[in-house]
C-alpha cells in the first residue's frame, strides 16, 4: 500500500468503515509511514473536535409547530396534490450496478483498491456485518491465548464443555484421521449472538468453525467465498448455521466441509 492509496482508507479507518482485514493493512502502513501517522492523528483530532463541539442544530420550536399543524391538513388535501416526482430521489433498493458502474467516476482510488472496497462496503448490511464479524472473530482467535477456551483433541471433552454455556449443541467431530486435527473449542460472538467456535488445525493453519442456532434452517450448502481476504465456507444443516474460516486454500476448505458434514450426519441424534 502506498500513501495515495492509504489516503482515502485512513479516512475510512477513522470513520470505522473498514473491515478487520483492511483496517489491519492500513494500520500496518500507517505504522511504517511518518506522513500517514501525522495524517491519522490530525484526522482523529478533527473528528473528535467536531464530535465534541455539538454541531447538531436544534430545529426552532416554531418550525416544529408549523410542520405539526400542516400534517393532518395535508393528508386530507392530498388527493388534490399534483403528483410530482412520484419517487423521492435515490436508489432506495440498493442497486449494485449503480455502485459498480459509477466507480469509474473520477475517484482518486486505484482500481485495485476500488475493487476490494466495493466488496467490503457494498455487501448488504446484515451479510456485511456477519462477514466482517466472522472474519474479525477468526483474526481475534489467532492472537496469543485467544484460540481456545477448552484445549483438547478429545471430542468427548469438547462437546460437554459447551453444555450449559450455549443454547446450541454443536456437533463436535474429530477429523484427525482426515488431516484436520481438532484442537479445542471456545465461545465467540457473531452478530450479537453467542456462538460455538470449534478449532481445527491443518498443518500450521487454523480453521475456525463457527456454529450458531438457526431455528428452522433448511439444509443448504453454499460455495466457497472470499470474505475480506479469507476463505469462507458456509452452510446450514439441522437448524444450525456453520461458517468455516481459514487461510488454507479454497479446495482444502471445501474438503473440510465435505468431511465434516458427512461425519456429522449419521451422528446427529447423539
Amino acid at each position: 500500500m502506498n500513501c495515495s492509496e492509504a489516503d482515502v482508507l485512513i479516512n475510512a479507518l477513522v470513520d470505522g468503515e473498514l473491515d478487520a482485514g483492511h483496517a489491519r493493512d492500513v494500520e500496518a502502513h500507517v505504522a511504517s509511514c511518518r506522513d500517514c501517522t501525522g495524517k491519522l492523528a490530525s484526522l482523529q483530532a478533527m473528528r473528535s473536535a467536531m464530535a465534541g463541539a455539538g454541531l447538531m442544530e436544534k430545529a426552532p420550536a416554531a418550525l416544529r409547530e408549523r410542520i405539526e399543524r400542516t400534517l393532518p391538513a395535508i393528508s386530507i388535501a392530498s388527493a388534490r396534490m399534483p403528483a410530482v416526482n412520484a419517487r423521492p430521489a435515490g436508489p432506495w433498493r440498493i442497486n449494485r450496478r449503480v455502485f459498480a458502474g459509477g466507480f469509474a467516476a473520477g475517484t482518486a482510488l486505484s482500481a485495485a483498491v476500488a475493487a476490494t472496497l466495493l466488496v467490503a462496503v457494498v455487501r448488504d448490511d446484515r451479510d456485511q456485518k456477519i462477514a466482517s464479524e466472522v472474519v474479525s472473530a477468526h483474526l481475534r482467535s489467532l492472537q496469543p491465548g485467544h484460540l481456545t477456551d477448552v484445549e483438547t483433541s478429545d471430542r468427548h471433552t469438547v462437546k460437554p464443555w459447551f453444555n450449559g454455556k450455549l443454547d446450541v449443541a454443536p456437533p463436535v467431530i474429530d477429523l484427525t484421521a482426515e488431516g484436520f486435527t481438532l484442537i479445542g473449542g471456545r465461545l465467540d460472538t457473531i452478530n450479537g449472538e453467542t456462538v460455538a467456535a470449534l478449532v481445527y488445525r491443518r498443518r500450521h493453519h487454523v480453521i475456525n468453525l463457527f456454529v450458531a442456532r438457526r431455528p428452522g434452517g433448511k439444509r443448504a450448502g453454499a460455495g466457497s467465498e472470499i470474505w475480506h481476504g479469507f476463505n469462507v465456507r458456509r452452510w446450514t444443516e439441522d437448524g444450525l448455521d456453520f461458517w468455516a474460516v481459514s487461510d488454507i486454500n479454497a479446495g482444502e476448505l471445501d474438503e473440510f466441509y465435505k468431511k465434516f458434514s458427512t461425519a456429522a450426519r449419521p451422528a446427529a441424534p447423539s
Partner: peptide, 12 residues
C-alpha cells in the same frame, strides 16, 4: 445518489 467510492474520495 453517488457510488460509495465517490463518497469516500469526496470525504477524504
Amino acid at each position: 445518489g453517488l457510488p460509495v467510492g465517490t463518497v469516500m474520495s469526496r470525504l477524504a
